[in-house]
Design a protein around this nucleic acid. Structure first.
Length: 830
RNA sequence: GCCCCAGUAGCCCAAUGGCAGAGGCAGGAGACUUAAAAUCUUCACAGUGUGGGUUCGAGUCCCACCUGGGGCACCA
């Protein structure tokens, strides 16, 4: 290119030159290190930390641009801002890469982290680099283990045998939250079930608080995230009612509770169903029916979760040979085993009320079981229509519940079973305990030692961290269904901390979501060596004032972090119960209406975009494209337009000829008014995360300033300097390089990032005259230029006197006149 | 099936219940230029997904529906 040999023009915007100039200056000034001295209000702004999978991509560019706008805004407003960054650096991709390259996962991980860190520096996110952390550092995971042991002590971490989700490709278990439509959310393989002994966190103990505390987040978190969490927790109120299973075939009587949300329909129960794959089913089944059950079970187990969950599937099941006694009317109900009843929800058994539950009705019709209507909803008999009725109505065929409306009947039925001692009011949740152990290498080792005499023994705190062996390579890490750690004899075999006898380390590692459930606390005191975090400092800075990240974490990470925070609150380690006061979900970056992907070949490389348009232009484009929570389609936006705008803004610096510090009071009032309105509006817009509109306001002001220079009062007018300086400060939130350079060209010292938000002169927000709209019956008929402080009376008189109004009214009588001084009059004729 | 969100100009998007347009992209015209790029000036384009309702007045509030996106789903 010939431009390489040409002398650069100092009055031409050259983003590459500007990008080279400022980072070292910012480092020297320490602009982004919080003082934490109490002299200013504190704000904690956090982006969800990245996973180090290669270099940064367009999605990172959007999310981190958003978080940076917020951090930079609070700094301009005079707050002491904590804005850190780190890496969520444990996880499967590193392990898979290591297997492929015959290397250790750390190599791939830390190389990628350096790459990303360099890209973040180039991208000019305003973070305090001294707080950087990696969850795969022993100094970090030592405290993940320490926290695990506190959970363990409280009984919140426990092991149990249970059928779990198993990913056959990744050869590891998955949490419920990681299974999407019956497939592994990471690799897409169809998930199978396996009964294994695994570690769990007792998150279900916190279900109520996780639900109830959402009240604090209402209005500050996106409604859909709250809705998703509510859905996920799935609280339903109802009752436990215990049915007695009659003895049969030499088998004893047995009491089996069911969960129901409709105890009012107890008299409508015509059969009883237990989950086919539950222990209960095999316990109950009589000798005569055992063979049928086991055949059925074979058939059920051959189905994948996806097949099993298809809602339009025909109902299947087998009779167990047993009968249950309805506690309210002593009727005998046949007990069936079926796969439409889930073994791990409720009690794994239900009373079937076919008239008022569609699933039960489908089953009744398939097996020719009786249907008895007990709530008269005014609809036709479900036995005839095949449609169960679930609405409100009056109880019938129900003994002493007869005549009651549904809600009262529910309450009365609960009373009855409670008095009888056969039931009680209760609440059930869809949420299950959090399965946290993984049979993989690259994660936090579970700090437990298994001793044949002492059982599960915690590794003593002073022996933490339990570090990962460093000598494993390639194939030694490949998934075998048990953790690769199990094969490392010298690592596994240790004396029991309690009795000193031979014992073995737990060889599983933790789900990486454990690592990320507390990193926001570690950032406050990242180098602390005797505790996971400094509680006083944490209580000073948290909860996080603004959390920014993708909606893909709406349930997983956010629910787990909320759970951790509540447990830490109960342990007295933090003084708040919700970690993130406000949440902003940025949209996705698409290309041509679709998510960028290799298979579609529509990927856009971030580095290339930065080279072509400059960092500031890419940041500006991301923010300006749409409201933060909407998707950005890269095919619809114009980074070159952003570069042009930045050049326009930057060139103002060349044309401002007054000196820094000049009093703007005598400057052009029109321009001053636009400047002050932009500054005032921007502050309000930023509070509401309307970043895209702030940029539109900035563009407006740049246009007005240009006009003032070229065809108005000229570049020497102090109002022009005032405007240009305001532009530099507000622009610094979005385009830090350009803003810094403009600020320098305006004769100021770095850094514009700490220049302070411009003070708004309220007097300049008031316009000399405003346009009042005169309507007749809601239709605009005339406009009047009036003083902004005109009285309602005056305006009314003026409006009624206009020719347009007289002509439109045409002698009609006036019913009312609505006056909203100084902007509007609406005259309503009879 | 249930729940949440969104539909404004060719496109991306603005608009405390008060004149539908702030900003940008793409497009037309012009100035500058030998020419082009860059820059500057300027212009056009919709009545707000559909149907009702509330109101003096609805893009905005309410109801129903349509379309698109997302979540949950054999959860008793």
């Amino acid at each position: 290119m010939s431009s390489e040999t040409e002398q650069p023009d100092p009055n031409t915007y050259n983003f590459a030159a500007i990008e080279a100039k400022w980072p070292s200056v910012w480092d020297r000034l320490g602009t982004f290190t919080p003082a934490d001295d109490g002299s200013r209000g504190r704000r904690y702004v956090l982006d969800m930390f990245p996973y180090p999978s290669g270099d940064l991509h367009m999605g990172h560019a959007e999310a981190f641009a958003m978080g940076d706008v917020v951090a930079r805004y609070y700094r301009q407003q005079g707050f002491d801002v904590l804005h850190p960054i780190g890496w969520d650096s444990f996880g499967l991709p590193a392990e898979n890469a290591a297997i492929k390259r015959n290397a250790h996962p750390a190599e791939w991980t830390y190389t990628n982290i350096e790459t990303q860190a360099n890209s973040f520096r180039r991208y000019a996110i305003s973070v305090d680099w001294s707080r950087r952390l990696q969850t795969s550092d022993p100094e970090y995971y030592r405290w993940t283990q320490w926290l695990f042991l506190r959970f363990f002590e409280k009984g919140l971490a426990y092991r149990k045998d249970h059928p779990v989700n198993w990913c056959p490709r990744d050869q590891t278990v998955l949490a419920n939250e990681q299974v999407v439509n019956g497939a592994c959310e990471r690799c897409g393989s169809v998930v199978t079930k396996k009964t294994l002994n695994q570690w769990y966190f007792r998150i279900t103990d916190y279900a109520d608080r996780l639900l109830d505390d959402m009240e604090q987040l209402e209005g500050h978190w996106p409604e859909r995230v709250l809705a998703m969490q509510r859905n996920w927790i799935g609280r339903s109120a109802g009752a436990h009612v215990t049915f007695t299973i009659e003895p049969a075939d030499g088998q004893p009587e047995r009491a089996v509770p069911v969960f129901t949300t409709r105890p009012d329909t107890l008299h409508g129960a015509t059969f009883f169903v237990v989950a086919a794959d539950s222990e209960l089913a095999s316990d109950l089944v009589t000798f005569d029916h055992a063979a049928a059950l086991s055949t059925y079970l074979e058939q059920v187990k051959s189905l994948t979760d996806i097949e099993r969950q298809a809602t339009d599937r025909e109902k299947t099941g087998v009779f167990t040979g047993r009968y249950a006694v309805n506690p309210l009317n002593s009727e005998l109900l046949p007990v069936w085993a079926a796969d439409y009843v889930l073994s791990d929800y409720g009690t794994g058994a239900i009373m079937a009320v076919p008239a008022h539950d569609q699933r039960d009705l489908d089953f009744a019709r398939a097996f020719d079981l009786p249907v008895r209507m007990v709530v008269d909803t005014g609809d036709e008999d479900p036995a005839v229509t095949g449609t169960a009725t679930t609405g409100d109505g009056t109880l019938i065929n129900s003994g002493e519940l007869n005549g009651l409306p549904k809600e009262q009947a529910i309450a009365r039925a609960i009373e009855l079973v409670t008095l009888q001692g056969t039931g009680e009011q209760t609440v059930n949740y869809r949420l299950r305990d959090w399965l946290l152990s993984r049979q993989r290498f690259w994660g936090t080792p579970i700090p437990i030692i298994h001793c044949s005499d002492c059982g599960e023994v915690a590794v003593p705190d002073d022996q933490l961290p339990v570090t990962l062996p460093e000598n494993l390579r390639g194939e030694e890490l490949s998934p075998k269904g048990t953790s690769p750690l199990a094969a490392v004899e010298e690592w596994v075999n240790v004396p029991c901390p309690q009795c000193g006898g031979d014992a073995r380390r737990d060889t599983d590692t933790m789900d990486t979501f454990v690592d990320s459930s507390w990193y926001f606390l570690r950032f406050v005191s990242p180098h602390l060596t005797d505790a996971p975090f400094d509680s006083d400092a944490v209580n000073r800075w948290l909860p996080v004032g603004q959390y920014v990240g993708g909606v893909e974490h709406a349930i997983l990470h956010l629910l787990y972090s909320r759970f951790f925070t509540k447990v830490l609150y109960d342990l007295g380690l933090v003084s708040f119960t919700e970690p993130f006061s406000a949440l902003l979900n940025q949209g996705q970056v698409l290309n041509g209406g679709k998510a960028m992907s290799k298979s579609l070949g529509n990927g856009v490389d971030l580095g290339e975009q930065l080279d072509r348009f400059g960092v500031d232009a890419v940041r500006l484009t991301m923010i300006f494209a749409s409201p933060p929570e909407d998707d950005v389609d890269w095919a619809d936006v114009s980074p070159s337009g952003a570069t042009k705008f930045l050049a326009r803004a930057w060139r103002l610096g060349t044309d401002v000829t007054s000196n820094p510090g000049v009093d703007p009071a005598g400057g052009d009032r029109g321009l001053r008014s636009i400047t002050h309105r932009m500054v005032a509006d921007s502050a309000a817009l930023l509070q509401n995360n309307k970043f895209n509109v702030v940029i539109a306001r900035l563009m407006e002001l740049v246009n007005a300033t240009r006009k003032a220079i070229d065809s108005g009062p000229g570049g020497e007018d102090p109002a022009v300097r005032e405007a240009a300086e305001a532009i530099a400060v507000v622009l610094s939130l979005f385009a830090p390089y350009t803003a810094e350079d403009l600020w320098e060209r305006l004769g100021h010292q770095a850094s514009v990032a700490s220049a302070g938000w411009p003070t708004v002169d309220e007097g300049l927000l008031v316009q000399a005259t405003v346009t009042a709209v005169v309507q007749v019956q809601g239709k605009v008929r005339d406009r009047l230029e009036v003083a902004p402080d005109i009285s309602e009376e005056e305006l009314r008189e003026l409006a009624l006197a206009t020719d347009q109004v007289k002509r439109t009214l045409d002698g009609r009588e006036i019913r009312t006149v609505i006056v909203r001084a100084p902007k509007l009059v609406n005259i309503v004729p009879r």
